[in-house]
Simulated scan of single mutants.
Amino acid sequence: MDLSLNDEQLMLADAVRDLFSDSEGDPTAGGDSPEVALEFRRDMWTQGAELGLTALPVAEDYDGAGAGITDIWAATHALGTLCAPEPLTDAAHVPSWIIADLGTAEQKADLLARISVGEAIVPLAHAEAGTGWTSDRTATVTDGALTGTKTAVVVPDAADAFLVTAVADGEPGVFLVAADAAGVTVDVHRNAEWVRTGTVTFEGASAERLGNADAATVTASLRRATALGRIAHGARAVGLMETALKTTVEYLKVRKQFGVTINKFQALTHRAAQMYSDVELARSTSLWATAVAEAFPGTVDTLSAEDLDTLTGTALDAHNFLSGQARTIAQEAIQLHGGIGVTYEAGISHYAAALTGFRQIYGGELEARSAGEAAEAVSTAPSALLDNALIP
């Protein structure tokens, strides 16, 4: 299986790095305290849209790029190598996948075109306190008025509208709610990555249903979007791990103890070598899941139940493996840096925080692992990973 990127994807990754490297507000540069840092960088979002990043999953009919998941992997991986905090996956790609699945022709023409060019930010509002990611929602819609509370909504104070999952007449649906609508309250805070996220409360807010799909199609769309979102986030996590490894190795070469650089200590060299192995396994697993997902393009109505199970199962298996690797790399990077590694001014602390944030997406690590354990079958891993003692 060829897991390498093609020339166009490598060029896309290079363009992303050129744009975001040393950009103003770079979180790894220290500077401002977490309380005032990592504001949503509207200028970088606009420039990213001009580069075509927000348009990647959108069909060409709606001014998009019509790109595949591997193209998205290339872009999000590059963002990860820089620890760029832009929520490209959750504020642009996941909403685009859901709208493409469920929206009416008019909704697609309006929303997808505006998301594609960066004019609209429409994050998914799905998570609820005390409710599992795949459980029935507690938010409800009655006579077009939505009531409920959503947590972990990305950049809620920069959103133009929200895609809100809720129950109407006993059936699940996805609803569009304007961010400035009456009855919408946003409480902004920081997540594990020190990036702005928030709780959004809806109290009788006017809501427009996304299409007229039945419950099975709505559920299938959310499963597909979550699976593709896991793969995109996994790409970013691999990028984070690669830079964390590079930064740690460079630090070992300059930090002195007892008159010599600490890379002379055999135990630390062995730990760095193990980190390299862990990162390579993570990269291969992430690309394997991406390659599997490439076999299932299009919208949810083109997928059979078996295809959807394969896609979601593969994405979940890869995510669970990457979560473990993320924890290991974050811990090792911090420990090999010593006390300086946990300070906000040290760039490595941001990579460790971002890897911690990765483990909390879409219901969190424990829910994802439970879902993986409960699955009827485990996806087939690439041969390089079979019977490998390094896999926990």
Rank of each mutant, 00 (worst) to 15 (best):
W194I: 06
A289Q: 06
P57K: 11
T134N: 13
T165E: 15
F20W: 11
D2F: 02
V94C: 11
A120H: 10
A295V: 05
T285I: 01
A159F: 02
V155Q: 11
A84G: 02
T46N: 08
V218Q: 12
D101L: 07
V292C: 00
Y62I: 01
M275C: 03
A158G: 03
K264I: 05
T247D: 15
A368L: 10
A235E: 08
A272L: 09
L12I: 07
V122G: 00
T142C: 06
I69F: 07
R359Y: 02
V153Y: 06
D26R: 05
D169K: 03
T54S: 15
D26E: 14
W133Y: 15
T140I: 14
L385N: 05
A179I: 04
G198K: 10
S284F: 04
A192H: 08
D301H: 08
S135W: 08
R190D: 01
T134S: 15
T314P: 03
A326S: 15
H233V: 01
D187Q: 10
V300Y: 12
I72Y: 01
G80M: 13
E128D: 06
R42D: 12
A181T: 11
L111N: 04
G103R: 01
P382Q: 03
P392E: 05
Y251P: 00
E193S: 14
D43K: 07
D90T: 15
G298H: 13
T165V: 13
G204N: 01
A389F: 02
L124H: 04
D278N: 14
T302L: 07
H77A: 00
T89P: 01
A207I: 12
A15M: 06
K256C: 07
D22K: 12
D61H: 04
T165K: 15
L146V: 12
G183C: 09
H350P: 06
D61M: 06
A179R: 08
A291M: 12
E39N: 12
V254W: 00
V200E: 02
D309I: 01
V279T: 02
K246G: 03
Y276F: 10
A49D: 11
I329L: 11
V117H: 13
N6R: 09
T138F: 02
T380D: 09
L176C: 04
G259Y: 10
E332R: 12
G31L: 08
M275I: 11
V16K: 06
G25W: 10
T76W: 08
Q274W: 12
G347D: 14
A215G: 05
F265Q: 11
V300K: 11
T219L: 05
I121M: 09
D26S: 03
G170S: 07
L56G: 14
Q274P: 00
A291N: 13
V155W: 14
A105C: 00
Y62S: 00
L163E: 12
R17H: 13
T314E: 04
Y251C: 00
W45S: 04
A192V: 01
A192Y: 05
E171V: 14
A368Q: 09
F162A: 08
A282H: 01
E50H: 02
A15F: 08
